[in-house]
Amino acid sequence: MPEARCPGGELGAFIILSLVTLIPAVVVVTSGNIVRSALSLIPTFLGVTGLYILLHAEFVAGIQILIYAGAITVLILFVIMLTQGGSGVRIRQINEQVPLGAMAAVWLGFLILLVVFRTPWQIDATSVPQYNVSSVGTAFLTDYMLIFEVTSLVLLVSLIGAIIIARREE
């Protein structure tokens, strides 16, 4: 695939995807209806997926949809519906820390942005190899072998843990 591309097109796609990510994210944290905020996670995750595709990380994008949009969101929705707070327009969703939380979030964001703009990033302009699924796999089984194994162990432990915690006591 030739690298020649319309920069305006990429920028447009980036802006659209950012908005698709950020606007529902705001809904997630502010909506008074918990089911709506859980469902707003879907466009957020799909927007992030689009950003991954713009960054040529197709495999991560596929896993993102499969795990986040397809599994985690459904799990969250499921727990919401099994517990009392199915909807709850009348239940207060926010605590009394709103000003404090907003301040903390804004300050942290400001701080990170400051760091981002002050750091001279060393951009490497070479293009990415097109087919990177197999290279990710190779990396997992060579350079990052230990991480891979430990992650699988964590998966197993959390599986057992989740079952034991959620099991009804007989």
């Binding site: 994210a25 944290v29 992030v48 903390a104 804004v106 942290l108 964001g109």
Partner: peptide, 8 residues
């Protein structure tokens, strides 16, 4: 921005 929103 996404991180700040999540933190909030």
């Amino acid at each position: 921005l996404l991180f700040s929103i999540g933190l909030y």
